[in-house]
Nucleic acid binder design. Structure first.
Lengths: 396, 396
DNA sequence: CATATTTAATTTGTGTCATGAAAAAAATAT
DNA sequence: ATATTTTTTTCATGACACAAATTAAATATG
């Protein structure tokens, strides 16, 4: 038994986090838990320091008379949470409070692109330490660290099948980090973390089911079904970038042929440009794009074909999942390369035709720290789960 | 409240159905519900007539001494369930008892390929009536009808966006059927029903997550996640057959280009054969296959390309879902056309490479009535849910 | 300014339910 | 015949959600 209470606690807490601030009676309405139970549960959460009352403010929705409703909020300073993204040559770190507000941002170069396991673990540790020091916090105050990196990762086990940042394959990275860090660490694939970021801070707020597609050097996908990230059996699903769009097609950096990434990734675009010769820049996609924009037919055709391939990938995702919402997420530049309107046109005309509204496709431009914030969001979730479970244990 | 009891009832019932016959104490072990609660719940189910005790048999696992365990089974004659598949020109119907044993099989031609809504509803009604009459049962004894047909269908609403069997688009077929049939009807896409059939009677028994791919005239897919069929937002997901495998590719009967089906479907194979001329048969895939088998290089290349495209589709499914199990399901013939070993070879070499066991791929040959049995399985599930909900209501 | 009214939150009592422990049941072993 | 073993049922307990009643805290009203 006792699990029903735990689920109640979760529901109430999520309602509060979701609403930002909300009176007990509205929690009752939102969760359809009785006011009596809401009182019981909130008083627990209150005394555990996870939430707090927002006294003076006249909570919104309050009527003219009657006892004023007192709003509850998640206690922002309950825990300090860290999110980290390991990129090619750079470590980005954010420290968030428990409601997800940024406390501090921090960036640090990484000496090598590819490192030994313990070495990278140390880099992570030192980076977090430095970040904490820089904002005069103690690393031991950090209640949880979310860590994102490229590669094939089984998040459940903090296990890395392969990552461009690690020399070894099949690494128990969670264990390696546990040796050097005091707080629980949650490792995940970077595309999943973008999905988390969208869910908590972005276009996915309030949505229970959606798909996030990221376009950077590669193409990534995150699948959210029923508020949860779908990970597959071995934890390495959602590899849209290595979905095949052409039989015996272009060579991909994964060593196989015909992957979507091999047509849409930046290296794919540059490869085309370099083959053609004719004075097209082939060291920067932005430069190549400038040529296309200026009217160069060859450059244009390169982006056009990539766009069509991307559309194909999107169509396949939609035909398979019939999602409610697809979020194209990435930095401004990477998304601009593909003419959005034409892309949507292609997608619309190639999707299974049904007399029902098409899935919504939203484009979302993110800054540099999206990945790290997603990692932090993931950690916030995990820490919340831990703390509420603790509460349930203590009550017993 | 009271939902925990309902969930308990479901768990217990599923455990019984799953095990075929099982003693209370083993139900307790299997569900980790206490023996006390199992007693309470089973006595309810018992008095509702959903299950029965299997007295005389020495239930398996019983020890030498001690009170003998008495096994429980689902009461086979609790309800009569019908499953029906509307195919091109044929109606197949099965009547199953409540444990899924076939009571009667029945087939009837359909006059037209494509009909008006009410006309088709009448065909369904008359078919069911005839089937019942043929085995001396009353149609009113049928507690539920599962109905499968090709097309884009929102099963939740018994709503048909489009079907080759219906003249109209966007049909409230559930409502049309309710007017002429006394029992609840559950309509679904045929690929989903194959998934149901696999889950209840086939290779999916005991699996919580798997993907079924059917190869017939078209290519279909059913996705089972957490024991439930994934349907997408509008109920028209899992359209693997119209996934694009070639930019600007071959014309598909859906009017678009490059669909997987346009390379793998039977009409696609015959089209190739007919274009080439050279005395290849182009009216029967079986005949074409005989040529290939006999060594005809052109015929071979037709099947080979189709096989490669099919492999591509499978690879994409695996890369996206990272499933535990994929079931290739269909009639013997349709599967034989594609050399199984080579297909698997292609799939293995094109899937994202991880040092973890590949998803299992099982091939399952089915007879003609698979579709109807899947429909019946779907109805059994739905009726069970209804009856247990009724029980919960009555208890209140 | 006292009192009514209104709305929110809390308290109280009740009923449901799962469960552990004890008892009963039903067999075999001695 | 009695002990032992194993399954099932009964019983008492405790957790919990909730409806109803109560309290709290504000505004409206005369």
């Amino acid at each position: 038994m006792q699990d029903q209470r735990e689920s109640g606690r979760h529901q109430v807490f999520e309602a509060i986090r979701n609403a930002n601030q909300i009176a007990r009676i509205d929690i009752a309405k939102a969760t359809s838990i009785s006011p009596a139970s809401v009182t019981a549960i909130t008083s627990e959460l209150l005394s555990a320091g996870l939430i707090k009352e927002l006294h003076p403010e006249p909570s919104p929705g309050s009527a003219k008379r009657g006892r004023p409703r007192v709003a509850l909020t998640v206690c922002d300073n309950a825990f300090l949470i860290a999110g980290m993204k390991i990129a090619d040559r750079q470590l980005s770190i954010v420290l968030l409070d428990f409601v997800g507000e940024t406390v501090f941002e921090f960036t640090q170069p990484i000496p090598e692109r590819r490192m030994a396991t313990d070495e990278l673990a140390k880099i992570v540790r030192d980076g977090l330490h430095a970040a904490c020091a820089a904002c005069e916090r103690n690393m031991h105050d950090v209640a949880g660290l979310g860590l994102g990196m490229a590669g094939l990762i089984d998040a459940e086990r903090n296990y890395i099948y392969w990552s461009p940042s690690l020399e070894a394959r099949n690494v128990e990275f969670g264990a390696a980090l546990a040796k050097v860090l005091p707080m629980p660490v949650f490792v995940d694939n970077d595309a999943n973390l973008v999905a988390k970021a969208e869910q908590h801070f972005g276009e996915g707020r309030g949505e229970t089911d959606f798909i996030v597609i990221t376009i950077e050097q590669g193409v990534g996908m995150g699948i959210v079904i029923g508020n949860k990230i779908y990970r597959g059996e071995r934890g390495c699903g959602a590899e849209l970038g290595h979905t095949k769009v052409q039989l015996e097609g272009a060579m991909c950096r994964c060593g196989q042929r015909g992957c979507l990434e091999a047509y849409v990734g930046d290296y794919a675009l540059l490869r085309e440009a370099s083959v053609h010769g004719q004075g097209l820049p082939h060291d920067s996609v932005a430069a190549l794009y400038a040529h296309a924009k200026a009217g160069d037919a060859t450059a244009r055709s390169i982006f056009e074909r990539a766009g069509r391939m991307l559309a194909m990938g999107l169509v396949n995702v939609i035909n398979i999942f019939d999602p409610k919402l697809v979020i194209l997420s990435g930095e401004q530049a990477s998304l601009d390369f593909f003419d959005g309107d034409r892309l949507l046109e292609w997608v619309k005309s190639s999707v299974v035709q049904v007399d029902a509204p098409l899935p919504e496709i939203r484009v979302h431009h993110w800054g540099d720290l999206m990945w790290a914030k997603g990692a932090a969001a993931y950690a916030i979730e995990a820490v919340t789960r831990l703390k509420i479970k603790e509460l349930s244990r203590d009550a017993a």
